[in-house]
């Protein structure tokens, strides 16, 4: 039996549910599933400009594993660009660093520290909040 996949730490979930190409004429468009940890790998390496070793430590995985996830992410994005496919973000093997919530009314994202007990959105006081850690 193979070793269990270790959960990858993700500091913050992506801010979108997906991307869609425009100016493309096709009725049925397929989508590519980009995992949260792949999004995080791209973000750490190419946006925060960390080297793979630092990034791997943040995500709680080994450097070679990070490199594999990063490569998978790049290939998926390239495939989506070339084949004009949608990108959909899915949960994958990620574990959120902390409990994050999103408000469905004002789209603010926030965490609730253990010292607080409120279940309202801190930005607009709406009760319509949803956990991002499914």
């Amino acid at each position: 039996m193979p070793r269990r996949t270790r959960l990858r730490k993700v500091v913050e979930p992506p801010r979108f549910k997906g991307y869609r190409p425009y100016g493309v004429n096709s009725k049925r468009r397929e989508s590519i599933e980009l995992l949260y940890e792949e999004y995080e790998a791209i973000k750490l390496a190419d946006y925060d400009l960390m080297n793979h070793k630092e990034a791997a430590e943040i995500m709680g995985i080994s450097r070679p594993t990070f490199a594999r996830i990063y490569e998978a992410a790049r290939r998926k994005i390239a495939q989506a660009l070339v084949e004009a496919k949608n990108i959909k973000t899915v949960y994958g093997n990620a574990i959120m660093d902390k409990d994050w919530f999103v408000c469905n009314k004002c789209h603010a994202r926030f965490n609730i520290p253990k010292t607080m007990t409120s279940d309202k959105c801190p930005a607009c006081n709406s009760n319509d909040i949803e956990s991002l850690n499914k």
Partner: peptide, 15 residues
């Protein structure tokens, strides 16, 4: 983020 979480300070992200 790590520090704010350690001190139990709530973070709210608006876009």
């Amino acid at each position: 983020k790590d520090l704010l979480e350690k001190f139990d300070i709530q973070m709210v992200i608006l876009k």
